[in-house]
Simulated scan of single mutants.
Amino acid sequence: MPDLWLPGAEIHDLGDHAPTDQQYPPKAIAHITWDRDATAAAPQDWVPYEDLVSYFTGSGAGDAPHLVWDPFSGRTTQLFPADSRSKSLLSPAESPTRTNRAGRVVIQIEAVFFPYCRYQGRVYPRLLDTPCAGWGRIHTWIASLGVPDVWPMGRPTDFSGHRDESVWETRGGWYAHAHVPFNDHTDPGSWPDLAAASGTPAPPPPGDATPARYQVSINGLPYGYGAQGYQVTAVGQALVSRGFGSHYHSGPGPTWTDADTENYADYQGSLGYSGQAADGVPGEGSLNRLLGYLPGQRSVSVAHVVSAARTDPGAEQGHRTYGSEVAIVEQALVDEGLLEQRWVDGSFGSRTVAAYAAWQRRCGYQAGAADGIPGQASLHRLGAARGFTVTD
Rank of each mutant, 00 (worst) to 15 (best):
G323N: 02
Y24A: 13
H247C: 13
V240Q: 11
G134W: 00
G349W: 00
A265E: 00
A309V: 01
A259R: 00
L67S: 09
P203Q: 02
A212T: 05
V305A: 01
A30F: 09
A41R: 12
P204W: 02
V47G: 09
S350Y: 08
G275V: 03
G383P: 07
E284K: 08
V106T: 14
A277P: 05
R310D: 08
Q23A: 15
H304L: 13
P26Q: 08
H17I: 10
A102L: 02
D266I: 03
G245T: 06
V240C: 13
F159T: 11
T99L: 13
W174N: 14
D35Y: 11
R36M: 05
E50L: 10
A308S: 14
A111S: 03
T39M: 05
A315I: 05
A197V: 05
L194H: 14
Y223E: 01
P81A: 02
A385K: 07
P19H: 03
A354S: 15
Q331S: 10
A61R: 15
S59H: 11
F80T: 06
E94V: 14
R104T: 12
V305F: 03
Y365Q: 13
D35T: 15
P2S: 12
A234I: 12
L294G: 01
Y273T: 00
Y124H: 02
D335P: 08
R36A: 14
D129A: 13
G154R: 08
D45W: 08
D21Y: 01
